[in-house]
């Protein structure tokens, strides 16, 4: 069967995640840093629950109350022009 993409933004596949989990017993953060899964432009809005699930399922750990992958601002990608003003006002 063809491999299945889990993180659409960074095109990280299930077998890539499985490989990392098998060899590193990673935290959610380590899994992200090693594969870039969840680091794309959507900020994990599509893959966050999928990554939680993969980790839970393959490591047999129950879900924690804290969100496994820390949520960081900005929660929508934003441009420097938006943050600092477009310059039109000056």
């Amino acid at each position: 069967m063809r491999d299945v993409i889990i993180c659409r933004c960074e095109e990280v596949t299930l077998s890539q995640l499985e490989e990392i989990i098998k060899h590193h017993d990673p935290s959610a953060r380590e899994l992200k840093l090693r594969t870039r899964a969840g680091m794309g432009i959507c900020g994990g809005k599509t893959c966050r629950p999928l990554l939680d699930k993969v980790l839970q399922k393959l490591t047999d750990k129950p879900p924690t109350d804290d969100i496994p992958l820390k949520v960081q601002p900005p929660v929508r990608p934003t441009s420097l022009a938006q943050l600092g003003g477009s310059g039109d006002e000056t």
């Binding site: 659409r8 095109e11 794309g40 432009i41 959507c42 809005k45 599509t46 990608p77």
Partner: peptide, 15 residues
């Protein structure tokens, strides 16, 4: 280079 289109259609997925 894979083709992409709309996925969530309400601004979440950025596809």
């Amino acid at each position: 280079g894979a083709p992409r289109g709309i996925y969530c259609n309400i601004g979440h997925c950025f596809e």
